[in-house]
């Protein structure tokens, strides 16, 4: 290794100017790996989706793009099934998010008591979160079977006629929502619980001294303290609901979301356009509509929250 001899000794430092330049560059090397990937697999696909949505592109020949202007969008808005999917996404979103968050709040409140075996409770309630969408849906699809499902059997025991959880519009949407609720309630309960535990205990003690009942404490101490957490879970659940896909796809294995598209969500609609009918351009248009929708929803959510906070401070 004669070369090393010629090189400056290890202890020697590069000249000060160079060092400063390097120091200036160095922060970028820390963010470079992330941004390189982000540009290639995050930002580019998103922007390119808008571009693709203006072309006719078929899955079999992704290299051939044919200018279509806004044709994909007008076809989209002219398709009744798109509107069905939009409506379904909304109703399933409400059916899954509202009970999920309400139950999570209740459970969190209970979990916040001094409990024996509290770790067991917490771990058990988080179990569904660890299950994959695929596994959960396959199991629930069976439980919701029309002719041999356990749920219909149980309903039969209390005298309810068998429900067609597959082809009934509301029934199927409830069934699909149930899967979502089952998977996420425990998780949200833990998030709320964490929020509750960071509410200063003195507030409760003060309320107790004032003679407030447990219920009033919940209303006047817990809920206000949790507001940011609740807003956060609402936003995230809304986004989750907007892109719901695996549950409706695997519920019956139907890419159209059931026989009359009764539980087809926008995510599934997009998948059907792209990988069912092979119209990538139209799928891209759907993706952009979803994007705009999500941005709008987030803006509305935060605006509402801001208004409430303002009112609060004004009070």
């Amino acid at each position: 290794m004669t070369l090393t001899a010629a090189a400056p000794p290890r202890t020697a430092r590069p000249p000060a100017l160079l060092r400063r330049r390097l120091a200036k560059l160095s922060p970028y090397t820390y963010i470079a790996p992330f941004f390189a990937l982000f540009a290639a697999f995050g930002l580019f696909p998103l922007l390119y989706t808008a571009y693709v949505s203006l072309y006719r592109v078929e899955l079999q020949t992704p290299g051939q793009m044919q200018w279509r202007g806004l044709g994909n969008y007008s076809a989209l808005f002219g398709d009744d099934y798109f509107w069905t999917a939009l409506r379904n996404t909304f109703t399933i979103g409400v059916l899954s998010t509202v009970p999920q968050l309400m139950m999570a709040l209740g459970l969190a409140h209970l979990l916040n008591y001094k409990l024996r075996g509290r770790t067991v409770f917490r771990v058990t309630m988080l179990l569904p979160y660890a299950t994959s969408v695929a596994a959960a849906t396959l199991v629930f699809a069976q439980l919701f079977g029309r002719d041999f499902g356990l749920i219909n059997y149980l309903l039969g025991l209390v005298g309810v006629q068998p429900v067609d959880w597959q082809s009934g519009t509301l029934a199927s949407q409830i069934a699909v929502s149930t899967i979502v609720v089952w998977r996420w309630t425990g998780y949200n309960a833990l998030i709320y619980l964490a929020g509750m535990q960071s509410i200063p205990a003195e507030l409760y003690e003060a309320a107790e001294l004032d003679g407030a009942s447990r219920w009033r404490q919940f209303l006047h101490v817990t809920l206000p303290g949790l507001r940011p957490t609740i807003l956060f879970t609402v936003v995230v659940s809304t986004i989750g609901a907007t892109q719901l896909f695996g549950e409706p796809l695997l519920f019956e294995g139907s890419i159209s979301g059931g026989i009359s598209h009764q539980y087809q969500t926008l995510g599934l609609y997009m998948y059907e356009q792209g990988w069912g009918f092979f119209h990538l351009g139209r799928a891209a248009a759907t993706a952009w509509v979803m994007f705009v929708l999500i941005v709008l929803l987030v803006l509305v959510n935060t605006a509402l929250a801001r208004r409430r906070t303002r009112k609060e401070t004004a009070r």
Partner: peptide
Amino acid sequence: EQKGTSSATAWSHAQKGIDNA
């Protein structure tokens, strides 16, 4: 058969689906 949709409506659904495909 499963939802009791009328023949005409169902047929229009089929047409729409075919147009899409």
